[in-house]
């Protein structure tokens, strides 16, 4: 059964035709254990549908999380379903999704496929890029979201922009309802909630670029 409505398919096909430049590889890790991963099948299905609408530009590469731990770790994938977006030069942009791209996060995925396909820099201010380039230690940005949260994509995308600038920065969308234990650990009860380096800094809300950057630097 197709997940997307015909109208949405037409929209995506058209958007991809106009906006996708180079191929993008979605490297996705899934588990065969459905009890452990309720959303693995759904994630695979939706990514396949997206790939199908891309005229061959979006490629989906599926891996088994349980048997390919090392490969998963090399992409910083710690949970399933988890996926990263790799550009046509093989660059891992530090853009990580944990959980199915549902609701408003589906729009995030579409925007970011287009962004990564351009093999270029994210649309950040020069001053932001400069500060991010100076980061010399690993930074982990986790953006907790719910699919129904309209403000969440803004926070996810900003984190992903930051990650694109410096390979030491990883930014993970975490679908909070799929990873309850992790959400409890960081006391997530409002989204978007952004956690830097396991809680060294955190904030709630889709803050503008400079304030967001301030927290990221503070959490190092």
């Amino acid at each position: 059964m197709a997940l997307l409505k015909e109208k949405d398919k037409a929209f995506i096909r058209d958007k991809f035709e106009k906006e996708l430049e180079n191929p993008v590889k979605v490297v996705v890790f899934l588990s065969k254990d459905e009890k452990l991963c309720h959303y693995c099948n759904l994630t695979k299905e939706i990514l396949d549908e997206v790939a199908h609408l891309s005229g061959g530009k979006v490629l989906v590469e599926v891996h088994d999380f349980d048997n390919e731990k090392e490969l998963a770790a090399s992409y910083h994938v710690e949970r399933v379903p988890g996926f990263v977006l790799i550009d046509s030069k093989g660059k891992d942009n530090g853009i990580l999704f944990s959980g199915a791209p549902l609701g408003h996060e589906f729009a995030t995925l579409l925007e970011e496929l287009v962004l990564v396909s351009a093999n270029g820099n994210p649309p950040l201010k020069a001053s932001t890029i400069e500060k991010l380039q100076q980061v010399d230690k690993p930074v982990k940005i986790q953006v907790f979201v719910t699919p129904s949260c309209p403000y969440c994509p803004g926070a996810v995308i900003m984190g992903h922009y930051f990650a694109m600038v410096n390979p030491l920065i990883q930014s993970e969308m975490v679908e909070a309802t799929e990873f309850e234990e992790l959400s409890r650990r960081f006391q997530v009860s409002s989204v978007p909630k952004i956690v830097i380096n396991e809680g060294k800094a955190e904030f709630v809300g889709a803050l503008p670029e400079e304030q967001y950057l301030g927290y990221v630097l503070q959490g190092m």
Binding site: F11, L42, L102, A107, I157, M158
Partner: peptide
């Protein structure tokens, strides 16, 4: 409810 939003993510400035 599962839904798929196609449109209102924060977009790169035109």
């Amino acid at each position: 409810m599962v839904f798929f939003d196609t449109g209102d993510a924060f977009k790169a400035p035109p």
